[in-house]
């Protein structure tokens, strides 16, 4: 994980990362192992639960992107040093 100095991460950013970790833990839904019940009359509850994990992941990643984005990364990428190690193989970006 990029450190706070690199990202200038706010407390919401840290919360977003905690949310990602929590989703990773909740993904292991051992309590649904034998559950064959249906939701909405057709959707197996175990499948719906995992689909909700996917939706939760999108929300968590949106928070990470918004509040824990690495700062200055474009600036670093654009400031190639003179002794670029791939300078002998330049093929693009001309």
């Amino acid at each position: 994980m990029p450190n706070a100095a690199e990202t200038g991460m706010s407390s919401i950013g840290k919360f977003a990362w905690v949310l990602v970790a929590l989703l990773a833990i909740l993904h292991y839904d051992f309590w649904n192992w034998e559950d064959r019940s249906l939701v909405f009359g057709f959707m197996p509850s175990g499948l719906l639960y995992q689909a909700l994990i996917s939706i939760g992941a999108a929300v968590a990643w949106a928070l990470v992107v918004k509040f824990a984005w690495p700062t200055h990364i474009e600036e670093w990428a654009d400031s190639a040093p003179a002794d670029s190690p791939a300078a002998d193989e330049q093929v693009g970006n001309k």
Binding site: I73, E74, W76, A77, D78, S79, A80, S84, P85, A86, A87, E89, Q90, V91, G92, N93
Partner: peptide, 11 residues
Amino acid sequence: LWAIGKRYNYV
């Protein structure tokens, strides 16, 4: 990797 690739012109 995108940043490194751009900085050092990797393909």
